[in-house]
Amino acid sequence: MSSPIKVATASLAGCFGCHMSILDIDERLIDLVGHIQFDRSPLTDIKKVGPCDLGLIEGGVCNAENVEVLKAFRRQCKILVAVGACAINGGVPAMRNQYSLADCLEEAYLHGAGIDNPQIPNDPELPLLLNQVHPIHEVVWIDYFLPGCPPSADTIFTFLDELLSGRPIQFAYQQIHYD
C-alpha cells in the first residue's frame, strides 16, 4: 500500500445508514484514512466529484438529480460499488413502485392528514421524481455489490482492506446478508 487511493462517496435515494455503517468501522478508520484520500463525499466539503479510484454509492435512483450525480460518479471513478440494499435493488424506497407517482405525491402533499395550503411542490430548483425507484445498476455499470441494509461495518472494512491490499475479496458467511 503506497500512495493513498482516492475515494468518493454519495447517498442517492439512501437513508445515510450505509454511511453510518462506514463510520461504524470505528478506530480502524484511523488506519484506513492513512491509505485513503476522500474526494466528494457527505463527509467532505468537496462539491463536485473528481477523478477517483473508488466510488461508493448508497441509495437507489429516485429523481433526476440522482441520475446526474450517479453518471458523474461513473465518469470519474475507476471502480464503482453499489453499497446496501437500496443501491442494489431499490430497497425499501422501491416499495413506492407499487403505486403511481401521482398517487404518492397527492397522498403526501394534497390529501394527507394535517396539510395546510395543499399543493405539489413545482419549483424548478427541485429535482423531478422518476416514475419508479431504480437500482443503480439499471443506470450505470457497477463493478461490485455490497449487500445489506446496511452492510455491516465488518463487511465494508473487509472489502476496503482486501481491495487496498490487492487480495481477492472474500467474505465470511455472517458478513453477507440482505437485511
Binding site: 453499489a82 455489490f145 446478508h177 440482505y178
Partner: peptide, 21 residues
C-alpha cells in the same frame, strides 16, 4: 430463497427488476 442465495454466493440480483404490483 435468501438462504440458498447466501449459500450460492449471490451478492446482488443484477438484472432489471420487474416490480410486480
Amino acid at each position: 430463497l435468501q438462504a440458498v442465495a447466501y449459500h450460492c454466493g449471490m451478492l446482488a440480483p443484477e438484472f432489471v427488476h420487474f416490480y410486480p404490483k
